[in-house]
Design a protein around this nucleic acid. Sequence first.
DNA 1: TCTGGGGTCCTAGGACCC
DNA 2: TCTGGGGTCCTAGGACCC
Length: 417
Amino acid sequence: MRPSPTILHADLDAFYASVEQLLDPSLRGRPIAVGGGVVLAASYEAKRYGVSGGMAGWRAKQLCPQLTFVHGHFSDYQRIADRVMAVLDDFTPLVQRISIDEAFLDVSGSVHLFGPAEVIGEQIRSRVRAEIGLPISVGAARTKHLAKVASQVAKPDGMVVVHPGHERAFLDPLPVGLIWGIGPVTQKKLAERGIRTVGELAASPNDSLRALLGQVLGAKVSALAANEDERRVQPTGRASSVGAQSALGRRAATPDVIRPVLGHLADRVAGRLRAKHRAGRTVTVRVRFANMRAVTRSRTLPFAIATTLTLTEVAEALVHSALSDHAGERHISLLAISVSNLVDQPVLQLELPLAPAPPDDAIRPGSRLGATRWAVDQSVDAVRRRFGHAAVGYASIVLSEHASVPDAFRELAEHEL
DNA sequence: TCTGGGGTCCTAGGACCC
DNA sequence: TCTGGGGTCCTAGGACCC
């Protein structure tokens, strides 16, 4: 009997669009896009025309005139994806979910129960199809990375098994873009050197690989080619940063625009931190100008914060610093706030002794001002828990004017804190 | 009619410490 | 007067992934 691969990668096909086609049978077999101003997800029928996620709606319509736009049923996506993941759990406890719609499975301990990996893969596919009604592709290989490549090759609605010993034969003809970590920019760089396939990439000398891709990615490619890739499937950890951003179209870079947007973003970010009893020391803002060039500014504080007003103020100072470095830019198209360097926030925050007021009293937790702000946030959080998020707090007119994506969509992309 | 929102990770330079 | 090497942390930019 030939050896069997033990790592599976299961990946729902065009997930959001497939759910819409599941919920509304009249959409099945037709090119559809979830979203409007921007394509959040496209069905395979639409992808055939070149429609893809992140694309401007008008551009998508240009490529595919019969494209149907549908409003997303965002609250259904999480629920349905969770049901799919529950199916995976039936085959092994070693499931590593890496996003809403895909996961790795280590089935090395399950083969005596269910049969070899390829049998498990087919069982997963038929159960997800029968019980949930969605197409899912599965890749099986000896390592995670390779299993992921295999599932991409298997799409749509297929399964690809890479048998041990046949890795290079499988990989070598594939385009380099299928490797995790090689995106459009690197692909172009490689193409300029005549490298288009994994085989060509693997054949190039190690040092030039490193020079082209950097130490880490270069080493990864070597490992992949030598089949020494990571195979450990581990439970997904907590997020190491929390952020929020808002595209603004084209707005003047003035305080009356910036302040309410930052307030709104800080409210989202700090609220999520407090909900999970976390706080962060490093605040990073990103400012994208009207010409799409973006800059970042960050500041690491001596202590961790999770207070909305404090985060707003730190972010505002950073944005001003970015803007004064680019005084020529009069318009901005996006603002973002991210908090990293996260720590667990003891709930006894308020009980900390009140220190004599330092100059930065406002941001120091436990100080008089800091305690006041903390208390305000606690009240807001409590009201929201009881009456819903909209009951109190920022409702930015600037943002609602531009009508970005629904909050429910944002929440789908949030990682566990 | 330009181009969403949530993240992770890498690189490189500089400050600072031992 | 000139000078090593390692480690850690911080900042800015950027590529990439879903």
